[in-house]
Computed example of a mutant assay.
Amino acid sequence: MERVEITDDIIRLGQFLKLAGLAESGAQARELITDGEVSVNGEVDTRRGRQLHKGDVVTVDAPAGQFSAEVG
């Protein structure tokens, strides 16, 4: 699992997906979240504006497999 450093104390889920390379664009991030393919700390979350804190683990279930990144 990759650890992705952020400069502030929090980051929104949609922004983090792009920063971590788990989504190629904001539109793709929105689609992944809306389709229920994104989980935070093991629980599916459909809120693009969900605030993430350091230590949170984001996982995407994509057709190519499961990818995860930790907020650092």
Score class of each variant (00 low, 15 high):
Gln15Pro: 10
Val58Asp: 06
Val57Met: 10
Gln15Glu: 10
Phe67Asn: 06
Gly36Pro: 05
Gln15Phe: 08
Asp61Tyr: 10
Leu19Ile: 14
Ala20Cys: 14
Glu31Ile: 11
Gly42Ile: 15
Gly26Asp: 13
Pro63Ile: 11
Lys54Cys: 13
Gln66Tyr: 12
Asp61Cys: 06
Gly72Asn: 03
Glu24Asn: 06
Gly36Asn: 01
Thr34Ser: 00
Arg50Gln: 04
Ile11Gln: 04
Val57Thr: 12
Glu5Ser: 10
Arg12Met: 03
Leu17Tyr: 09
Ala62Phe: 09
Val57Glu: 13
His53Tyr: 13
Gly14Glu: 15
Ala20Gln: 13
Gly26Met: 13
Asp9Ile: 09
Gly36Tyr: 00
Val40Tyr: 02
Asp8Tyr: 14
Arg47Cys: 03
Glu31Gln: 11
Thr7Ser: 04
Ala69Trp: 11
Thr46Glu: 13
Lys54Tyr: 12
Lys54Trp: 13
Asp45Trp: 01
Phe16Gln: 09
Ser25Gly: 02
Glu70Val: 13
Leu17Thr: 07
Arg30Cys: 04
Gln51Pro: 11
Phe67Pro: 10
Ala29Leu: 10
Glu31His: 10
Val38Ala: 02
Thr46Asn: 07
Leu52Arg: 04
Ile33Cys: 00
Ser25Ile: 09
Leu32Ser: 02
Ala23Pro: 14
Gly72Asp: 08
Arg30Pro: 05
Arg30Leu: 06
Gly21Arg: 05
Ile6Trp: 14
Leu22Phe: 15
